[in-house]
């Protein structure tokens, strides 16, 4: 519990710093987010909107009012573009992002551990070399490029997956099972693309860890008991690699979220990444601030969860 309290306090301070820096960066950037882009709209219109959104106040007053509203009622203000509460926009797009990021996490672990296992069973074989080379390659390739190629080849070319969106048109007419299948059909390709880059890292670590385990006393004992290679690696070997793999999940959380912005753009996935990107392009300050905060909360929560899980898996962490 001590560890949890310390981590929570540190997370709260970090969150406040992130909010303040983001507010400063976004509001001090040159230009007027409410300046009309249509020449037919007179400049007075921007003045009226500025007054409506409180932007005619001094910056410190804006900051305190904004922070107060966030702290007291989780009110992030109204989007300049849509007029809707920024928190609502983010809350709507959060579930698709969590679904995509969670599925990508699953994909990266299933792929990474699977390939690591294959490579570890025959170290220095052609298969092992292939896995190592492939893991380096997918790590090096940018997500947007892999995504575009996946859409062109698997989506447009072969028709194996929808090319964009989270559901088919008018999916609200589908029954529950069909809806699930429809979402999964739209999900697998972006999740795979997003998960690929980190899967290489996990494959390399799993391979190394499992090869190490086989030469330990525990590994030799398991073999002496007559257990199959598969069982030795899957059950005992992975237990050995577990704490580090959990840590890698925490490390990959921010990468997954930033990667989601790219993947969501390529696959028109209606998540936080798409919302944030559009808000940045339109200089929609309340939405950018809320998106940064939600992103920060997600990353901090993932790190915290990983820390606590790690402490459970390896009690020595608490002692440190």
């Amino acid at each position: 519990m001590g560890l949890a309290r310390v981590r929570l306090a540190a997370a709260a301070v970090l969150f406040l710093i992130v909010l303040t820096l983001t507010f400063a960066a976004v509001t001090l950037a040159p230009g007027d987010p409410l300046a009309p882009t249509d020449p037919r709209i007179p400049p007075e219109q921007a003045e009226r909107l500025r007054a409506l959104y409180g932007l005619d106040q001094p910056l410190p007053a804006q900051y305190l009012r904004w922070l107060g509203a966030v702290a007291l009622s989780w009110d992030w203000g109204q989007s300049y573009q849509t007029g809707r509460p920024a928190a609502d926009l983010l809350l709507e797009s959060l579930p698709p992002t969590l679904l995509l990021a969670g599925s990508a996490l699953l994909a990266q672990y299933v792929l990474g551990i699977g390939l690591g296992l294959l490579a570890a069973r025959r170290p220095n074989s052609w298969l092992d070399l292939g896995v190592r080379a492939a893991s380096l390659l997918v790590y090096a390739l940018p997500t947007f490029w892999v995504g575009l190629m996946a859409v062109l080849v698997l989506g447009v070319g072969l028709g194996l997956a929808p090319t964009g969106g989270m559901t088919s048109a008018a999916a609200f007419e589908l029954g529950p099972l069909a809806t699930v299948l429809d979402v999964l059909a739209h999900l697998w390709l972006p999740a795979l693309v997003l998960g690929l880059s980190m899967a290489g890292d996990i494959a390399r670590y799993t391979r190394t860890s499992l090869i190490e385990f086989q030469s330990t006393e525990a590994g030799r004992a398991a073999r002496a008991r007559g257990l199959s290679d598969t069982r030795i690696l899957l059950v005992h070997g992975l237990s050995h690699a577990g704490p580090r793999l959990v840590q890698m999940a925490a490390v990959s959380a921010p990468l997954l979220l930033s990667g989601a912005i790219v993947a969501e753009a390529v696959f028109s996935w209606p998540g936080m990444g798409s919302t944030t990107l559009q808000a940045i392009q339109a200089r929609d300050v309340p939405v950018v601030l809320a998106a940064t905060a939600y992103g920060a909360v997600l990353v901090i929560a993932a790190s915290l969860a990983a820390d606590l899980l790690l402490a459970r898996l390896d009690p020595r962490i608490v002692a440190e």
Partner: peptide, 18 residues
């Protein structure tokens, strides 16, 4: 009406018959 924010994605969806 489907919201497709990216023009390349728009073309892809049209080509794929979506």
């Amino acid at each position: 009406l489907r919201a497709v924010p990216d023009s390349t994605a728009l073309t892809n969806q049209l080509l794929a018959g979506e």
